[in-house]
Amino acid sequence: MMAVTNGGVVHASSREPLFSFGVIADVQYADIPDGRSFLGVPRYYRHSISVLQRAVNSWNKQQNIKFSINFGDIIDGYCPKDKSLWAVQKVLDEFEKFDGPTYHMFGNHCLYNLPRSKLVSLLKMPTNSDRAYYDFSPCPEYRFVVLDAYDFSALGWPRDHPVTAEAMKFLDEKNPNTDKNSPDGLVGVDRRFVMFNGAVGKEQLLWLNDVLHNASLCGQNVIICSHLPMDPGSASFAALMWNYDEVMAVVHQYKCVKACIAGHDHTGGHSLDSHGVHHRTLEAALECPPGTSAFGHIKVYPDKLLLVGSDKMADTEMCFEL
């Protein structure tokens, strides 16, 4: 499900954007030989960091990229656990070469390797606690919301933590398979009830509502960023956030949200939901053969977003009503 532009063509704009920002998803670096996904898709664990290096070089050369956003999974679950910290730091060192701030979020592979509390610190998340969701405003017209898609999940919390127990109980009710990472036998969007996905918790939902309410009062457009996609049209059913419907019910109460951008589903996708919100799932850096890339930058205008991709990341124009 490749992303497409409106009408199949990205139109050049005569106007200068308000700002631009870099995007990359699912680097999933590991110092191990190439492998394949459970679907047989080749994965290039060592090469993926080269994709990130090319992304940073590209963003720096343009000199007008205000910040970058990493959509999670900076290292892979197959990374040897005694090398997890080293691998995360190696990837972060490459992000540090970008001439601007990078905003990070958790992916499931991050949580296979390190606990949440350690990652919040390593990723320098701009929060006042161990929580991994936050918002920021790069200009008066726009606000970005970064969700923690694994706030309620069986990943990253200590084994004896109440959230772990509650999430496992939830999975047992939704997924009868012994292997909770398997969607076998689940139908339609119920295929999302697997352990490698997660949900936005109740406290975070209340926080999101407050942020969107305030953004509406300020007349701001909002871009929501999440590792997990939140629209069935933009990703495979097995890649969706557990409670994407609850999150979008909050989002659809307001007209300020213009786009939801995600990673996780490596083939990428684009959809426009019934309320006019764009959903763009980004293609993965991990699945780029040597010499190819998947990253991009998004030009932000008052009435549209223009994703300019490289190689495997498709260009996408996302127009919206003011």
Rank of each mutant, 00 (worst) to 15 (best):
G22N: 08
V23L: 10
I24S: 03
Y29M: 03
I32S: 07
F38L: 15
Y44C: 05
R46P: 07
H47A: 05
Q53A: 11
R54D: 15
K61F: 07
K61N: 11
Q63H: 13
Q63Y: 02
I69G: 06
I75L: 04
D76P: 04
D82M: 11
S84V: 11
L85W: 12
W86K: 12
V88I: 10
D93R: 13
F95Y: 15
F95T: 10
G100W: 02
H104R: 03
H109M: 06
H109T: 01
C110L: 10
S117A: 15
L119W: 08
V120K: 15
K124N: 15
R131P: 00
Y134R: 05
P138F: 09
P138M: 11
R143W: 10
R143K: 15
V145F: 10
V146Q: 08
L147C: 11
D151H: 11
S153W: 03
A154Q: 01
L155R: 08
G156Q: 06
W157C: 04
P158Y: 03
P158W: 05
P162Q: 08
E166N: 11
M168V: 01
F170K: 00
F170M: 11
D172Y: 08
N175V: 01
P176W: 03
P176R: 03
D179K: 09
K180W: 10
N181C: 11
D184T: 10
G188D: 12
F196R: 09
F196V: 05
A199L: 09
A199R: 09
G201L: 09
K202S: 14
N209C: 09
V211A: 01
H213P: 00
Q220Y: 02
Q220N: 04
V222L: 09
I223C: 11
I224G: 07
C225K: 04
L228W: 02
M230Y: 10
L240F: 05
M241Y: 01
M248I: 06
Q253H: 06
Y254C: 00
T267I: 09
G268Q: 00
L272H: 08
H275A: 13
H275R: 13
V277Y: 07
V277I: 12
R280H: 13
T281I: 08
T281G: 08
A284S: 15
A285L: 06
E287D: 14
P289R: 12
T292Y: 12
S293F: 12
S293D: 15
I298P: 05
I298W: 03
K299A: 15
K312G: 13
E321T: 11
